[in-house]
Design a protein around this nucleic acid. Structure first.
Lengths: 113, 113
DNA sequence: AAATATACCTAAGAAATTTAGGTATTCAAA
DNA sequence: TTTGAATACCTAAATTTCTTAGGTATATTT
């Protein structure tokens, strides 16, 4: 896993994307999924994720559904309507970022991206 | 200019790229060039750039050539051999980052990138 | 003459994340 | 069966990187 600093600012976008795809997920599951999808390249740590989930909930982007699993309470997160809108905005923002970087780095960056 | 946090971690790569292209540049010029190349999308501030230039010089990636312009001293920066190697590494790292993000965000991100 | 642009710089504060813990339950293996 | 690993939640200090907000001085434009 290289270039951790490049992933700064991408957590919110990633969480929105996963919840948009999967419908509902819990924190621990999100960490595993990111690791799996990125072939271990990106390790989203719990110390970064949980505060972000709490922040996004307080911003009204996520809602919680608590489910009892034995003696444990698992907290599933879903997108609110606002969260769905925000997802679109963040994806657009990321595309914009890539295009801008391409303007600056072109033609050094991989032409296939 | 949106998504400033996404550009975190890209300054070094951008400086290496510009110096690789232009041969030598001075700080103020780098700021202007980034603004120009990005159509004003990315404002590389002097408060971020100058400390980075000093750091990169201390790391042996850059060397300085001082030129007197009237009563002023303009500091041109060039890549050292180590700097040229680092440029290749940072570009590779950035491409890797994009590919990884594509794995996670696909198919939401722009197919054209 | 005054305002703007050029050209360098530093330092306090903010923001996002890493690192390094903590708690408790459940499952697998020895 | 107990012990370690995995699951599942959490917080907080420290670190990194950048923004914000200055400062200084020269050169050019209005």
């Amino acid at each position: 896993m290289i270039a951790k600093e490049l992933f700064k600012g991408t957590i919110k976008t990633i969480v929105l994307k996963l919840l948009s795809d999967q419908g509902k997920m819990y924190g621990y599951e999100i960490c595993q999924k990111v690791k799996e999808l990125s072939d271990g390249e990106l390790m989203l740590t719990e110390g970064a994720l949980y505060p972000m989930l709490h922040k996004m909930e307080s911003e009204g982007l996520l809602k919680i559904e608590k489910v009892n699993i034995g003696k444990r309470v698992r907290k599933y997160y879903k997108l609110t309507r606002t969260g769905k809108k925000e997802f679109g905005l963040k994806i657009e923002e990321f595309n914009n970022f890539i295009q801008t970087m391409k303007l600056i780095l072109n033609p050094s960056i991989n032409q296939s991206i």
